Lab assay of single mutants.
Amino acid sequence: EFTQISGYVNAFGSQRGSVLTVKVENDEGWTLVEEDFDRADYGSDPEFVAEVSSYLKRNGGIKDLTKVL
């Protein structure tokens, strides 16, 4: 089950073990991109978060400006 990723309007994530599946949706709710990120592939949590965040930004993730990150 996908849940909204904090700080984004149209990005959602689903966690299974160490694998986080993220997706970005358009205004109609269609999935634009979907990608798996395995936490085990990264040396640290900040590196993992930075990679996921960068992916979302590159692929149309819209920041939720009503929330302070």
Rank of each mutant, 00 (worst) to 15 (best):
F37Y: 01
Y55W: 15
L56Q: 00
I62T: 05
R58Y: 09
E28Q: 13
R16A: 07
S18V: 04
L32D: 03
N26A: 07
K57C: 15
L69H: 15
F12W: 12
F48N: 01
A11V: 12
V68D: 15
G29S: 03
L69R: 03
D45Q: 07
I5W: 07
A11W: 04
N10C: 15
T31V: 14
K63P: 12
K67V: 14
T66P: 09
R58I: 10
V22E: 00
G43R: 09
E47D: 07
D36R: 12
G60M: 05
K23Q: 05
S6Y: 13
L20V: 06
Y42P: 01
L65N: 13
D36N: 13
T31D: 02
V24N: 01
F48D: 01
D41C: 13
K63H: 10
E51S: 12
V19I: 13
Q4Y: 08
E51Q: 10
K63L: 14
D27S: 12
E35N: 11
F37T: 00
R58K: 12
A50K: 11
L65V: 13
S6F: 09
E1V: 12
Y8S: 06
L56V: 09
V9P: 03
S54C: 13
S44K: 01
R39G: 00
D27F: 10
R39K: 04
R39I: 04
I62H: 07
G13V: 11
G60K: 03
I5G: 04
E25T: 14
Y55K: 02
E25W: 10
K57S: 12
S14L: 14
R58T: 10
W30C: 15
G60Q: 02
Y55V: 00
G13R: 06
F2R: 08
D36P: 04
V22R: 00
P46R: 14
G17A: 03
E47N: 02
F2K: 06
T66M: 09
K63R: 11
G61S: 06
D38Q: 02
D27K: 13
V33E: 04
S54E: 14
E1N: 11
D38C: 08
V52F: 02
N26H: 08
E34M: 14
Y8T: 06
S53N: 13
L20G: 00
V49C: 15
L69F: 10
E35L: 09
S54I: 08
S53D: 13
F12Y: 11
F2A: 05
S54D: 14
S53H: 14
E28T: 09
K63T: 10
G60E: 02
G13T: 08
V24R: 00
V22P: 00
R16M: 07
L65D: 14
V52A: 00
F37P: 00
R58Q: 09
A11S: 03
F48L: 03
V19N: 01
E1M: 11
N10I: 05
L69Y: 10
L69P: 15
G29L: 04
S54W: 09
D27V: 10
G60D: 03
S14N: 07
R39A: 03
T66W: 10
L65Y: 14
Y8K: 06
E28S: 11
S6D: 12
G43E: 11
F2T: 05
E47V: 03
K67Y: 15
L65E: 15
A40L: 11
G7R: 03
E1R: 10
N10M: 03
T21E: 01
T66A: 08
S53M: 14
R39Q: 04
K63G: 06
Y42Q: 01
Q4A: 10
G17C: 07
L69G: 14
T66D: 15
L56T: 00
F12A: 01
K57A: 11
E51R: 08
D38L: 01
K23L: 06
F12G: 01
I5E: 03
V9K: 08
V68R: 05
A50S: 09
V19M: 04
K23C: 09
G61I: 06
L32Y: 07
I5M: 08
K63A: 11
K23Y: 07
A40E: 09
G29P: 03
P46Y: 14
E34Q: 13
N59L: 07
V49R: 11
T3D: 05
D41T: 07
D64I: 07
V9N: 06
